[in-house]
Design a protein around this nucleic acid. Structure first.
Lengths: 235, 235, 235, 235
DNA sequence: CATGAATGAGAATTCATTCAT
DNA sequence: CATGAATGAATTCTCATTCAT
């Protein structure tokens, strides 16, 4: 609950109890057509989040200055506090807003999809929707700041990891039942499916400038190897 | 332009030129038996590095306070500065001192080792020497702080990644030549060999408390799948 | 080489280039009547400068703590940094803001003023506008800190000393041409005109409590002696 | 007594009562020929003082680091404390050891020396023994640090200024009595005699690199003007 | 005597957060 | 709502002084 990292936070008085990482109250907008006021407000909120992603992923949580976020969002420093309780809340919201839509795609996969097709969809989703977008940075932020914000890791586990692994396991189970594959490797370790994707994300951030990586090719190779093994063919 | 008086600045400037990430001058100790002085000095240096690893990996570079490192090492704040120029140098030394011995094992593998055996050695090395030790935290630190310390990533790439991938590629090449395997997948993407290891490291730090991971089993499964594919057998 | 993360360093570096001692950009206030905001800002700036003069001249540059300056100015420590980049800049601005108006008076003297009248004006200016004001402390600060801040001495030489000596020399030259005096002593060593003034400033700071000095009388005596010599009369 | 400047001194515990600026107990060496031990000790003491003069006059009291003094003297940091109680005592001794011999020459002047000759001797003494030696730096140090070390100014006033002005006044009085001069200007303001010398010292430190100053010529001009006035001749 | 490693009080500077305008 | 000036806690790094060797 209390973040491990944020040194300066001791000062923070009022917020102590509130769980920053809990889902926010989703200010319902109601009215069919949004009023201009609400629209502007939403736009501003989005601008702040976008700026925050830039800054947080470039510098990490502690080293990011809200003044830079504000400048990048084209607003004043104090304005951030009209939209987010504090720095940590802003960070939490940023992560959350990228998380939610993530798993939907995976879970939406029809249960009887052939495993190979599912895996290819899965990988494609990863490459297109994560590796190919700013979400790549969100993933890195989770890796980077996770250990210091236990809540962050927990939310991410609950909302993404658990659901995604469950989905994968279910699909694999069906594939086994249908006789598509015999190995239960992926059911026991669904992590093996994404591992190369993770490596790609990190490689990009750390080593791409020394040695570029053809991610698409690597992922294809990965899938090919995986299914050659699972199905017992020669690749 | 630069004032003569401002001590602090003169120093800062002087340091700016030094490359903190370059290999240090390795104070040779000389005499067969270490004097007590030198011994204590070395012990203290080690204590500081150990404490620094604890703190840096718990909080990251920016959020770590040298005062905490000192307290954990059982020394005074100022003492750190007798051993390391500044916070960044301490960090650099910490990373470096864990890096150097890493690759030796991999490169030492006989060129004609059957690939499967090499891979198993490799994985074992990873699990025992990295995953099973504090080096796991060093890996995480590199991932975490790398993007903010270009030198860190560069040194790590040069000293570890490049050499390790080269070694893997060489071994794979020999295996292909000997007809052990036909696929050049691992030669093109040696990353696929370690990917699950990386996932393990991160999983441990982020999600183990929600869902433990049997790393040894996962790595075994990974190797089995991989070679089933490479060799064209059914796993 | 320079780490990307370390904010502090990036800034320091950035500042290194800026010449603290160069004339500042003089934020133009614009609108005929100052807004309350701007007024308060200017007042605060002035308060900081006043407090800084007190502290710097009591303790010198290095020994002065910005916290004391802040307290004396009735503001918080951090506020100083809203008005001045750092301690050195504050010091530079302090000196400069006292310097600029100084020479104007001397240079404004009509070229054909009889030398004696000019000298008396000059001395009066010195006694009233320097010795009799806080500028006395500024002079002392220049003497005290000058050798350690080459820029300080340079700016002071360029903006004050050079212009003042040039003015004196010009006037002396005219006086010689007009036959008022024959000696070119003052033209060669204009320093002789102010020397006693300097002594007065230093005496005041160091020995006045042991033996007071009637500065006005001394300066009058000085002028009388000088002109008795230059004009060849008996004093 | 308590120095104004030395911030860190609050820590100093034991010394509180001792008057650092009082004359030291002059360890009498006794024995006709100094023992080697005592000789080495004296040499070391002198080396420290010499190094201290370099450092103090280059950086001022507060900014000078004893470690630099030690390095320059070719000894270890701790050794300084075997010869001087603390930083302030070292500073006091440094000033004192340069002061004592200073006035002797002036006071030794025969009472009936013609004033003009005395003045020329005086000036010569100043130029040769102060301006031309490291004592110039001591003078600057007194000016610089005097206001922060009330004791320093007091000792200097008592040991030098008072005695020197008294000597000058006595000589001038005799000159008047003998009818050499009629003006009592120098008796009232003996400062006028040295004023240009002081300017020379400061000019050298601050502006010489922009505009060199022929000190000898200036002092000669000064004396010529002065006596032309005092004696009522045309220069 | 001499050394230099160790200590820890400080001081400059930064930045999250507040709040008057 | 929005602003940005003001605050002051927190953190890095320095250096006088001590003391075991």
């Amino acid at each position: 609950m209390a973040p491990v990292a944020s040194r300066k936070k001791a000062r923070t008085t009022a917020r102590a109890d509130a769980d920053v990482w809990a889902a926010p109250a989703e200010k319902s907008v109601g009215k069919g057509a949004r009023s201009t006021r609400a629209e502007r407000s939403a736009a501003r909120r989005a601008a702040i989040l976008a700026a925050a992603l830039d800054e947080f992923s470039a510098r990490g949580f502690v080293a990011t200055r809200l003044e830079d976020v504000a400048r990048r969002a084209g607003i004043a420093k104090g304005t951030i506090y009209l939209y987010f309780r504090d720095k940590e809340t802003l960070f939490a919201e940023l992560i959350r807003s990228s998380l939610v839509p993530l798993v939907a795609g995976v879970e939406a996969a029809p249960r009887d999809l052939p495993l190979r097709m599912f895996a290819e969809l899965f990988i494609e989703l990863f490459v297109k929707e994560i590796y190919g977008t700013r979400r790549r940075d969100v993933i890195r932020l989770i890796i980077t700041e996770g250990p210091r914000f236990p809540q962050l890791a927990e939310v991410y586990y609950r909302e993404v990891i658990k659901r995604a692994t469950a989905a994968v396991r279910a699909i694999v189970q069906r594939a086994i039942e249908r006789g598509e594959i015999r190995s239960d490797a992926l059911k026991r370790f669904p992590q093996l499916l994404v591992a190369p994707g993770l490596v790609a994300v990190l490689w990009e951030a750390l080593f791409a400038r020394f040695e570029p990586l053809d991610v698409a090719a690597m992922m294809r190779t990965h899938i090919d190897l995986l299914f050659a093994a699972l199905e017992g063919r020669k690749p």
